[in-house]
Design a protein around this nucleic acid. Structure first.
Lengths: 347, 347
DNA sequence: GTTGGCACTCCCTGTTGAAGAGTGCCAATT
DNA sequence: AATTGGCACTCTTCAACAGGGAGTGCCAAC
């Protein structure tokens, strides 16, 4: 990921840094005059212009039109975050303030919502947190309740203290005691295993069951299979989408609508977040790096969060490419840790 | 609601009707010339102008500026929907198409989401559906699972086959069998009652319990109380918010943001929807009639929906005041019926 | 009561012109 | 060889302005 740049002088790097800093703050193209003042070096605008010309040649900045200043390109931002950026850790008091948010005893889902709101609140961007992956969620208990003829309500309790429920249909009417037996059977068999394992075991069990087991067990397995079937689908919680309306570069109704639609659709975003689970640590997509057109003018900063030493989800923020990476990155990082810690306590 | 208007001629009413129709379709102020053509009557623009002048005096229309056409005022719309509008029932094929959406066997929550999406999809506005009120939800069963020391997961199953869960804390550690006893006790006591009744009984029970009952029962009641405590809060499901971006009159980023924030906050909207439960049948708020500034340029068309003969919730659409009431009203009405019917089957 | 005519108002659009910001290049300077 | 000042040039932005268009209100005539 790190890219070496033998052909870019120390000075040019510094200028790029200052330019991007300034652009992130002001949102306006920055010209040679401004940069001369801002850079701290004792150089005339003319000199700066030469350097800027070089940076443009390298593809790090570009001019929106002949007589505007320069703005960073995607590659410019990329170089900036990869090699120019020094992320200073968050000051302790901020972290402490954030930790308090998570201190309150709440269900995992609430915690995840808080994390999302926290992210959007502090960064003034949109916050996003994926729900924990099911492979890492442990089966704790299942319960079947008869609703009506042939319809049963299945309640699945997982290690996170999270409850999922689904209505399932059986091919025949089941009595309460039958259901009781079924759930006992499953609870004994699977307690403490993770859902992925449960599901694969279930398939084997199903073969065997037909020949050697009684009707109840077959039913139980069928039901459990139905419950787990849809559990594969992932999801995320988003907060502060409206923050994005504040940015000039996204103020175009057309773009905004596409963006919001993408948020609701969830598919693309989910796919992107998925990629972030595999990479370790902070992951950043800038502009069109995401590959999705709707996110062309957005960046995404993510960090995976862990429970029990394993990565179970991702969280981060989405905002305009012109976002304060330096400030955002440590916040995302810290939030991931705090959320992980908070979730850990629940087990 | 119906307001008599002895001082407004048949002809003027017809013109108002045509004007509003046209404005709803085109979104542009309509002038005397256009109206003369559109109205079907053989009248010159000058005559029309006189009539329009009268309508303006009555407060039904107004001119954005001297030389624009006229646009309807809130009162204009109000008169329009109250007395001018003839809602023709939806054609059978549309209703049939909608009914199919609800045919699929699903959980109540899914049905409600579908209803919301259906509303927004067909009307191209934002759809909203409140979750069923708890007073009308029957207690079916409660289950307590130990999570860790002093922390218990309570699972509440209601008549709708809906499951709610909450983490609660106890003042001492409870054993599994104690929890079992507690839930048995509550299940026996409350099965089939509605949540409101359960809650009020609970308070009485609590008094008595302290003196005559054992620790387990006290704990059970305390826990049940905690479960029900937050259950009062209402909620709604919204869909198609982004549809609202299409309307010129809402295209202002500032307004849009306020609107979307209000949707997320939910409080104001919820309060408004609440008012619609009490009124019977279709309820319409136009512009500032809602009393909330963020909705000043919006209208809301709602209908209550029933389960088991009782109103349990409200659904409807939110859009600009310039919405196609004539088309929207029957859609909202039909959706309410269909959702009610679909939910009824689940009991 | 209805109509045509007419003056008037206001928005919208396109033009123009000047100011401002910034560039690129070149020749002079260090 | 790097740096600088100077200068011509480009492009945006803003305000002022003018003309066309749409629509009104009023009045006098039908």
């Amino acid at each position: 990921m790190k890219q070496t740049a033998p052909d870019i002088s120390e000075r040019a790097q510094h200028m790029l840094r200052v330019l991007i800093d300034r652009f992130i703050r002001e949102g306006q193209p920055v010209g040679s005059r401004t940069l001369a003042r801002e850079a701290g070096l004792e150089l005339s605008p003319a000199t700066i212009r030469n350097v800027m010309s070089d940076l443009e040649e390298l593809g790090f900045i570009r001019a929106p039109h002949t007589s505007a200043g320069r703005v960073p390109t995607v590659q410019g931002y990329r170089f900036f975050v990869d090699t120019l950026l020094k992320v200073q850790p968050l000051d302790v008091s901020s972290v402490e303030r954030m930790r308090l948010e998570f201190e309150i005893e709440r269900s995992p889902k609430d915690l995840i919502e808080s994390a999302s709101e926290l992210l959007s609140g502090i960064t003034h961007l949109a916050g996003v947190v994926t729900l924990p992956k099911h492979e890492h969620v442990l089966f704790q208990r299942v319960e079947f309740l008869p609703l009506s003829e042939k319809r049963v309500l299945a309640i699945l309790v997982t290690s996170e203290g999270e409850v999922q429920n689904r209505m399932i249909t059986t091919d025949r009417q089941c009595s309460t005691s039958e259901l009781q037996q079924a759930s006992n059977y499953l609870n004994e068999l699977f307690a403490g295993k993770d859902l992925a394992a449960v599901r694969s075991t279930l398939l084997d069990e199903m073969q065997e069951a037909r020949s050697t087991m009684n009707r109840i067990m077959v039913t139980a397995i069928q039901m459990a299979d139905q419950v787990l079937e849809e559990e594969q689908s992932e999801d995320y919680i988003m907060a502060g989408q409206t923050n994005l309306m504040e940015f000039r570069e996204l103020c175009d109704i057309e773009k905004l609508r596409n963006l919001f639609d993408a948020f609701n659709q969830k598919r693309e975003i989910l796919h992107l977040l998925d990629q972030c689970v595999h990479g370790d640590g902070i992951q950043i997509f800038i502009g069109d790096e995401s590959g999705y057109q709707t996110l062309d003018e957005c960046s995404m900063v993510t960090a995976p969060y862990q429970v029990g030493g394993e990565v179970v989800g991702v969280l981060g923020v989405i905002g305009p490419t012109r976002m304060a990476y330096e400030r955002v990155i440590p916040i995302v990082d810290a939030t991931a840790r705090l959320l992980g810690a908070a979730l850990n306590q629940k087990d």
